[in-house]
């Protein structure tokens, strides 16, 4: 390549000293920014808890004032159903869950927990009474529990096995009571 203007007009009579401080500060800042974004992306890639993963401890205080803590329920099968009164497919599912609950509640080793996802208490209680739901239900205060399970939308159901790890996941509404029974049996065997 012929380079006609190699001898540029030497306007720089004094060599500006290299701004080390600025360079170092900005590169540290930059690397920090990239690391943060990278970590974020890595973290947000995990869409939900995986089966077999250990579920952190949490507790639900129901609308009736009872408190259910995960660690205290160890050895039992826990079905956690995230729902909302404003969710259109939660009502049908509520019926099905209640039907299964009536069958299993006497056995004592299966617990159903309805976790009310970002909802108002008034509407939730109306909902529960309207559909005759009797298994324990409580609000997800500060959205803490739904964040553990990385809930994207309601309804979502998770079953925690007797060893405290996640045994089954159902995203979306159950279509029938049978589907719930099958999933519970599957989770019990794990």
């Amino acid at each position: 390549m012929n380079n006609p203007v190699e001898n540029q007009p030497s306007s720089s009579t004094e060599k500006r000293r290299f701004p080390w401080v600025t360079a170092i500060i900005s590169s540290v800042f930059l690397i920090g920014l990239l690391v943060v974004l990278g970590l974020w992306m890595k973290q947000s890639k995990v869409t939900s808890l995986e089966i077999g993963a250990n579920v952190p401890d949490f507790s639900v205080t129901t609308f009736d004032g009872e408190t259910y803590t995960k660690s205290a329920l160890e050895g039992k099968l826990i079905l956690i159903n995230f729902w909302s009164s404003w969710c259109s497919s939660c009502d049908e599912e509520g019926y099905a869950l209640e039907e299964v609950w009536q069958e299993v509640k006497s056995s004592g080793d299966i617990v159903f927990l309805g976790v009310n996802y970002v909802d108002t208490e008034k509407d939730s209680i109306t909902f529960l009474n309207k559909y005759g739901i009797t298994y324990p239900n409580g609000p997800d205060l500060g959205s803490k529990i739904s964040r553990i399970f990385k809930v994207q939308a309601v309804p979502e159901t998770y079953i925690i096995g007797r060893d405290g790890t996640l045994a089954a996941i159902k995203i979306g509404a159950f279509e029938s009571a049978d589907e719930i029974r099958t999933l519970l049996e599957k989770a019990a065997q794990e």
Partner: peptide, 24 residues
């Protein structure tokens, strides 16, 4: 993310490499 990071680092590197030539 990787593309932005690479482009940014390479171009800033070039700028630093030519720093003294760019004096006002």
């Amino acid at each position: 993310f990787i593309f932005i990071a690479v482009m940014f680092v390479v171009s800033l590197g070039l700028l630093l490499f030519r720093w003294s030539r760019l004096s006002s």
